[in-house]
Each structure stands twice: as C-alpha cells, then as structure tokens.
Amino acid sequence: MHENFDFSVTDRILADHKCAQQLIIAILQDIQEHYRYLPREVFPYLAEKLDMSEARIYSVATFYENFSLEPKGKYVIKICDGTACHVRHSLPILERFRQELGLSENKHTTDDLNFTVETVSCLGACGLAPVIMVNDDVYSAMTPEKASELIKKLKEELANA
C-alpha cells in the first residue's frame, strides 16, 4: 500500500462511523471535507477496513456528484444553474469565471490549486438569482462584472494570506 500516506485522519473518520459499510457515503464525505477531495490512497485502505471491494467504493464515489477524485482549489466557486438562475442569465457569469481563471468545461481547477469552478443545479436561493457560492458563502444577484471583481478580491486575499 502507500507507505507515505498518513492514514490517521482516515482511521479517526472510520472510528467515528464504527467502520460500518453502510456509512461509506458519510465516511467519504468526511474524508473529502478534510482533504477537499478523495485521495486515491484511501480507497484500498477503506476497502480493507470496511471489507468492501475497492471497485465498489469507487463506484459509489463516482455516482455522487459531490465527490471529487481530483484535488479541488482553495476556493470552490459553484455557479448555480438552477431554473431560476438559468432564466436570469447565469451562463455569462460562469463564462466570466472560466475566462478569468483560464478554466473550461473540461478543466475545473486551476493548476495552482487555488480555484475550482463548477456548476450546481440549485442552491436553494432562487429569490436572489443568479447566485453563486464560494466555499460556504453565497453571493447573490451576480453579474459577469461582479464575478471579475470577486476574483480580484479573492486573489488579493490569497496574496495577503
């Protein structure tokens, strides 16, 4: 297995969920919360500890949209493309974010792992459409221009950190 990977976090999470197969989704959620994605190393480890096949864990992880097998950026920008946001022009906002960060439909995360841009089907804030979410903060009534300003602000935050 991967000797250089520290499994203590995974062990703790497994213990929290009593190593129960049925809680695999919750276990993966906690692992993702910690690493911001699902590191490949944890799959064979989980397979052994939970007595499941690695293919099955992979199968579960790839079924659900929220799991990411690739490292995500420090800022995860989710652009809502629910019905309400869509009819109020969420697409140009998405385009602007991608353009500002050099991302595309197939490339969601910047190489420096600072930003991830993705779409979600609804954030449940339809009254404020179009909305986006950066990590846990919701930004409402977005426009492409506001998107550019936001990126500028976030980049400054990164520089000052």
């Binding site: 809680l23 989704i25 199968s59 079924f63 659900y64 949209e65």
Partner: peptide
C-alpha cells in the same frame, strides 16, 4: 441524519433508501 452526496435520483424512494444503505442511488 443522512446527508445526500449530489444525486437528483435519490429523491426516488428506492434510490434514497439505497443511498442511506451506502450504495449507488
């Protein structure tokens, strides 16, 4: 509480229970 992980189909009853059981929805 079972938190979903992003699958619309889990609103369907049997997919939802499958998801609580830790399976594909």
């Amino acid at each position: 509480i079972s938190r979903g992980a992003g699958a619309f189909v889990c609103g369907e009853g049997s997919a939802l229970t499958a998801s609580i059981e830790g399976k594909r929805g």
